[in-house]
Nucleic acid binder design. Structure first.
Lengths: 200, 200, 200, 200
DNA sequence: GATGAATGAGCGTTCATTCAT
DNA sequence: GATGAATGAACGCTCATTCAT
């Protein structure tokens, strides 16, 4: 490995460290309560250096959203190794339930970010948050379609909406059990879904 | 009416104006993006005067939560005039759908507040937000119990979770139709709910 | 004097102190090298308090320009007590020469401000600086017109241009004598100006 | 041509590009509003590389002043091909008027630089700006002396002062016509200058 | 009780300069 | 020699909170 590659690698590592730290800290503390110093400290990068990689704080928030999008892509990618779309959807729900402790403490990373960003007058960032959620909707819709359901988009909406709802309640009530309980219900519904016009 | 009563009345009017303004502005802009000056301006009260009624900004946030709680109490109170618990629950869902434009623009007042407050290290305020949501859960649970359902708390959880989920999605996607669509689904489910072990 | 008047008076005193300090410090150090802390310190006002009176640093610069405009108005006002327009113009030149030490150290307050502000992309403030200079041009033009000169505006332009030129040179060369020397020349020219089509 | 010469040549090209860019950008934006990155970008040189050629930003400012001095030397050099000193001086004024658009937009490069540098506590750079102006004074003085005038330095001062004044006014008022008007006046004066004790 | 004014800690951002390779 | 990356001090500005009257 040449020096130049070495340098580039270290640099992207730092950038990546910043993005990961941003995703983590923004999820924990929210956008407005998180200072750049918080993120820099978490990433072990001097504050001034952050601006070498990101022009503004909002740029970092955007990068954190991409990180969440990438996490989601990884998850759905792995699920697509399953042959049965129904199993894929159930796998998604199981992944949600597995995250129940995090959800109870901090909520859904993308969902809570979307809530906070939607309070802004400028709609640039909240559109991005919406896009990440839409990607999940699209993936779920594709699975329902593969199952031969009549209204795949509607079912996807119900599923993702249920996820956001249970995450919010688990968080607001500080009860991870909300995730297990509603998760179980969703799993049963997915199993029971047989007729093309079935509902969740 | 004596002067002292006059004074007390005028004072509580000011207080009430502040609380109403806080509820409105905090819902619109979120807690962190809202300054005391914003609320004071909206309430037409001088900034310095706010501290006569509320010791801190957090006190005002608390008061705004009470306002939402009171709004909720008013709504459920009116619904209790209906004899059939099923009709009461359907009335609740209809009220949610009626607010679809607001939900798409700003989300559920209590839910978005809960999300933001849960990001805090100090759990005082977010417990209060949780309590408001819990009150709604309790009321819904009571209706399901009155209907003779086997798991009234579980059904209430599913119902309120669905509401928070659809509000969040409507808001994130900026689509009020999400509220109508999911609302219709919930109404149909409530109608179909007959056996004691039925599910939403 | 009532308390309320007292309060208002103290407040405007503070504002006035800030404006005077701004005019002084901005003249000495220039706009870009002057920090708000510099001005606040000079005015003996806490930094944060500056923003109660001025929304931005540029607002303070604007106020400093008004201060220079006011100074100019005071000077020309006093000169108008002289009956002969020629004497008024000579009085103006004498006032310039009296300021020779200041001019050699810092240049003309308005002129140097105009130079610095003209470097900005946004032309709001530099237009204001231009307006102050134009006011001086207008006043001088009126005097030449009263003297019955054929081209009063042209003469005014030459006079004010000579002032700005000699201030700049005195400043750049750090030689107050430039002001005396050119001042004497201008006085002689004003005296010699008799025919309506005469030139400075 | 050996490689070492090649290298030295390429290096000085880079240096020269930086100096030219500095002169241009500093004239446009002023010293304080210009970042090293601005100059580096304009010169198409990597930022970090600037410090190979110039120890500090001030060094670059100094180099920009030398560039202006060189431009001036070139101009006066060409004018010296004229036999008559009077024609040389008139050629100088004509050159000024030709630059009227630039003057109206940005002022005299050296004059505005001098104004800005004179605001500094450290007098090193402003002395250099003064030296460039003094060089012009000297050259003009030599021409007046060659014309047999009694007070060549005084006449030079008046001439250069007129130039700086008209540039400043043209700039502050954003009126190139100021340059033409005052330029014409100076040309007429130079023509009318016959007696040894004549004045501009 | 009421309120304009005051306060200071802290934030996002910039930039000349230095460093490691 | 060359350069992308790093650094930290400083700036303009905001705002919850307090104070004086």
């Amino acid at each position: 490995m040449t020096d130049s590659v070495n340098r580039r690698t270290r640099a992207s590592q730092k950038r990546q460290r910043l993005v990961a730290a941003a995703a983590r800290v923004l999820h924990e503390q929210g956008v407005e309560r998180t200072t750049l110093a918080d993120i820099a400290r978490e990433a072990e990068v001097p504050v001034g250096n952050v601006y070498y990689y990101f022009k503004t704080k909002d740029d970092l928030v955007l990068a954190a959203l991409s990180e969440h999008r990438a996490y989601l892509a990884g998850l759905t990618g792995r699920l697509e190794e399953l042959a049965d779309p129904r199993e894929r959807l159930k796998g998604l729900v199981e992944a949600w339930v597995e995250q129940r402790e995090v959800a109870a403490r901090r909520g859904c990373p993308t969902g809570t970010l979307a809530v906070e960003l939607d309070k802004r007058a400028d709609g640039t960032l909240d559109a991005e948050a919406g896009a990440v959620i839409r990607e999940l909707l699209d993936w779920a819709g594709a699975q329902f379609r593969a199952l031969g359901m009549a209204d795949p988009e509607g079912l996807a909406l119900t599923l993702v909406s249920a996820y956001q709802g249970m995450s919010l309640l688990a968080n607001a009530l500080r009860e991870p059990e909300v995730m297990s309980r509603e998760g179980d219900r969703l799993l049963a519904r997915l199993d029971a879904l047989r007729a093309p016009d079935g509902q969740l």
